[in-house]
């Protein structure tokens, strides 16, 4: 009985965190858009905007395509949201408080990020339509390029902890946060995070020049669900980034969960600003930068982080 109760509580907590984080990201996004455009900030409109979008999605008819892969179309948003929940469930909230602590948390998170490419590819392939398929192949190129820098950036955080468990990775940052110990890690992680969340400058697979890319054929509820799943993934990436690089729940005065929320909000704000302040990267440029620049930098980061342990 208590096992079932614990499981239900954990699921509710993870879902709640993702929902609150997604809402916060939506607000930050609106605010950043207004700020970059130089428009006055209208708080009432800003607070209503996400709900207005959801309501309009619910009222729009869902379209279908000719001979789609129905199962794949239904599975893709669910898979992406599930991966976000899987990653979020390993977020340490306070000393000893974590929904799940597998001894291989690092690998589980990396596998979740690797499966994002399957979810996005499935989402682009299943409508049996040209533009979404183009988006899917774009994400293939992007995802295969960011995998290695991402793994190396995360690997460097596991070195000082001498463990693959995310709880231990946070604990090991008590003397010094990873963002200071390995300053290259967080920027690389954030660049990859933008790509994983199909967000802002790296929103190539769902870009406007492909009429929405992998979601070009989605409308109404289906489109909203996909966007919600994407946002959840971004929130999970920000939350785990705050745990891996910004010390998670560590911090003076305030209780642990508040620090987790503040640090996650900070990373989400950075992402929201990046979306509106930075130009979209060209895909071949990103692939080149990832292999030629990010991989060596990430390797250097691992070496520096290892040198601290000598």
């Amino acid at each position: 009985m208590s096992v079932a109760l614990d499981a239900a509580l954990g699921v509710a907590a993870v879902g709640g965190m993702l929902a609150v984080g997604s809402l916060a990201l939506a607000f930050a996004d609106e605010a950043a858009a207004a700020a970059v455009a130089g428009a006055p900030l209208r708080p009432r409109r800003l607070l209503v905007a996400p709900f207005r979008r959801a309501a309009s999605a619910l009222l729009t008819a869902t379209t279908t395509t000719e001979r789609p892969d129905g199962g794949g179309r239904a599975l893709a948003p669910a898979l992406l949201a599930g991966l976000a929940a899987l990653a979020m469930s390993m977020l340490p909230l306070a000393p000893g408080v974590v929904p799940a602590d597998p001894s291989t948390g690092f690998v589980v998170f990396s596998a979740a990020v690797a499966f994002v490419m399957i979810a996005v590819f499935l989402h682009g392939w299943s409508p049996n339509s040209t533009l979404p398929l183009h988006g899917a192949y774009r994400f293939g190129a992007v995802a295969l390029s960011f995998q290695i820098p991402f793994l190396l950036a995360m690997l460097a955080t596991a070195l000082p902890a001498q463990s693959l468990s995310l709880v231990r990775i946070v604990e090991a940052q008590a003397p010094l946060w990873n963002v200071i110990r390995e300053p290259l890690g967080l920027p690389i992680y954030l660049i990859v995070g933008l790509a994983v969340g199909l967000w802002g400058p790296l929103n190539l697979p769902d870009a406007d020049d492909l009429a929405g890319g992998t979601s070009a054929e989605d409308s109404g509820l289906a489109r909203w669900l996909w966007e919600a799943a994407r946002t959840s993934m971004l929130v999970a990436v920000a939350a785990l980034g705050s745990a891996a690089f910004l010390g998670g729940y560590l911090g003076p005065l305030l209780p642990g969960p508040v620090w987790v929320a503040l640090k996650t909000a900070l990373l989400l704000a950075v992402m929201a600003v990046a979306r509106h302040a930075l130009a979209r990267a060209r895909i071949e440029r990103f692939v080149e930068v990832a292999w030629v620049l990010l991989v060596p930098l990430a390797l250097l980061n691992v070496f520096v982080s290892g040198a601290f342990l000598l």
């Binding site: 690998v107 596998a111 690797a114 490419m117 399957i118 590819f121 293939g140 995998q147």
Partner: peptide, 11 residues
């Protein structure tokens, strides 16, 4: 690790 590897391989 097998699951992680195979996701990349399928792509």
């Amino acid at each position: 690790v097998l699951i992680l590897m195979m996701a990349g391989e399928m792509l």
